[in-house]
Amino acid sequence: MKSAGGFFDSELIARLSRLELVAKRIVDGFLAGKNKSSRHGFSVEFVEHREYVPGDDLRHLDWKVLGRMDRYYIKRYEEETNITALLVLDASASMTYSSGTLSKFEVGATAAAALGHLLHRQRDAVGLAVHDQDLKEFVPPSAKTLALAGIAARLKGLEPEGKTSMKEVLERVSLQLPRRCLFVLISDFFVSQEEIDATLGFLRYRGHDAVVLQVLDPDEREFPFESNILFKGLEDDRQLLTEPHRLRERYLEVLEGALGHLKKSCEGCGFDYQLITGPEKISEALAKLLAQRARRRKAASRNG
């Protein structure tokens, strides 16, 4: 595990700061900002007209339309709000795998810290949830300056262990969140497809936005083994003695299938998905993620 400040790679943050993290969906926010609220408020951006009905606030009556057309229309505005983001980091045993200098957990933590810092700079509220099959650490979202330091402190000293269970953890966490927010799910997602679907469906059902960052080790992505190897499971007692080069092709097929399924599930729920394979790919992956969200925001703007 890196030092407390280690997860906040200054170079990485500098590169990411040129981009904007824009939520695709409108979420409720405490702070005015660049994120649009899901509620039609009364801010600066006009959205649509609708006919006046008794009870409407007359402040929102469009007097110009009344003067020209002698009809009562209420003006509706889109309100720019701050988002509430929760960084959900998987700390199960499978995240301990490492083929190089950093484990998957460390890569995930680095990515989480970078995103937290970026959100905090946008004055968004950022929280942290660390879990395996249970919730191990929880930092409620906050826009305060000290919130970021709190997150860093919680990441420090964590030892991944146990199995992965996402849905139950997120159900518990969502109860503690007052409104819809942005979930940043950072995990290797080595869980069943049913659980993935259930987890993402749950978030979608509750109206949350989500960014899925899947962290894999280069070994897991390329499977470069040759000689006879006894593979031992990190989360359970399963093991397999095999000639890996003879399984490689099929393994990669299965892996691609799982990745494809996750990506498709994310698209189905309208969530962003990005794969990080190793520490060298963190900045590239986050950059892609932010660019991806920026394109979606523009597209959403064009669609009205």
């Binding site: 045993a93 290797d188 897991e220 006894l230 990190l234 003695l241 399984l247 393994y251 299965v254 799982a258």
Partner: peptide, 24 residues
Amino acid sequence: LNKRRYRVQNWAAMDFLLAAQVSN
């Protein structure tokens, strides 16, 4: 004899590996 000579590797993606092995 070759089957008896191997190294041990901890592995996270056992599900995928076992799935590949079953079909292979």
